[in-house]
Design a protein around this nucleic acid. Structure first.
Lengths: 220, 220
DNA sequence: TGACAATACAGACATATGTCTGCTTAACTG
DNA sequence: CAGTTAAGCAGACATATGTCTGTATTGTCA
């Protein structure tokens, strides 16, 4: 893939003057490693060696170590495939794959999670958090910047605080609304003047499924 | 992280009846591996062992091999950290880490990408696509559901079509607007009646940096 | 109850992979 | 020209990591 066809440039003791010239082999090594990291499989030193036609493992390692020294890469010494992106700690903080659900039928959240339509990579959730993702239908939350077709990422929880945007189950359907707790009433407040709030008495046929922690929209 | 505190359940010859019971250790192993893969660092067998408190490497390996047999995972035999997601039709499509940029100064896109503030896991981009992410400032795009503080994920490109939402560089700052191409004019159209469109002659001091392909918002 | 399957464990082994030391060539410097 | 630095090479070594063999425990099922 990133193999260098022009092997002549790699002959022993090849010239190289200015320490910081642009567009050099080192930049290509960095690009190669980034690509492998993006693909989810960090390369080994020997894989870099082969990709660039080096005759010695050490040649590849020197470039990798130099990239670490320059701050373009980071590594976990001693670990196999230990080179990764520099950001704090690891490549990215706790990334998790959360299930993307289809339609949530009455009482069927558990079943829906068992049989997801796909998976989304999400950052941030704590270790024990139960997460899922839903596609928004309807325009009731456009005032909060949540449009039809948007994906909401939800942390599973049975309760929520006043003002938080939640996924609630009303009758047979899951709906996204802002939660309002007022004097013994539970209100699901749309963010669109064209829609009316839904008012419930506590412990009625309404159930909180979780709290929206992120909104995503693909612009195809 | 995913360590199981309840070690008693892991004693030798622990019970386990139905082959396909739900919510078992095996599912947790799968979730653990998925998370590690999403984070860009495939786990070793021994890391799985430690995360679950197994006393033997083989116990972890059996679960991993079983997951491969069930089609939930794939592996490259012999390779270090060789477990990965099944190729096509698998749970997660091509996930990619894209750099999250800070402020983009004049002409400094390349430099900004060199020195990112962090990395975001993004799904979908094609192999060759050059991607980056930016934080939106200002309320000029609220009508399109893009609020201040939102993160836009951008595919690097020099041109765009009429109607697409783009990141353009005007003077010293990068800005997110909808692109309008009208009879020899380039218009950057806000989606907020309180803001006025920016009109340029072609090939002036405006430069397209890329096209917005996704919008994300964290609700802390 | 006895065969069988599923799970766990212990320990060894083979390979993959990071790391080190020493040598060589070429370009730049003074 | 001698000294220095950058880059590459060769080979060995140490560790990380996948894999195999054999054993033990427990529940299921005929």
């Amino acid at each position: 893939m990133a193999r260098r066809p022009n092997q002549s440039r790699l002959n022993s003791g090849r010239p190289k003057a200015t320490p910081r010239a642009r567009g050099t082999i080192r930049d290509e090594v960095l690009a190669f490693v980034r690509g492998r990291l993006a693909a989810g499989s960090p390369p080994t030193v020997r894989e870099v060696q082969q990709a660039f036609g080096f005759k010695a493992v050490e040649s590849a390692r020197q470039h990798l170590e130099a990239l670490v020294a320059e701050g373009h890469l980071a590594k976990s010494p001693g670990r196999a495939r230990g080179y990764h992106l520099p950001a704090a700690g690891g490549p990215a903080p706790s990334i998790r794959l959360v299930p993307q659900l289809g339609r949530v039928q009455a009482g069927g959240l558990r079943e829906a999670i068992e049989d997801p339509e796909g998976w989304l990579a999400v950052e941030g959730p704590a270790a024990g958090d139960e997460m899922f993702a839903l596609t928004v239908r309807g325009e009731s939350m456009t005032g909060a910047g949540i449009l039809p077709g948007d994906t909401v990422i939800v942390r599973r929880q049975d309760t929520a605080r006043d003002g938080e945007i939640v996924v609630a189950q009303v009758r047979d359907e899951a709906t996204v609304k802002r939660l309002r707790l007022r004097e013994g009433q539970v209100v699901l407040q749309p963010e669109n003047p064209a829609f009316a709030p839904l008012v419930f008495a506590p412990d009625t046929e309404i159930r909180i499924l979780g709290r929206v922690v992120e909104v995503r929209r693909r612009l195809a």
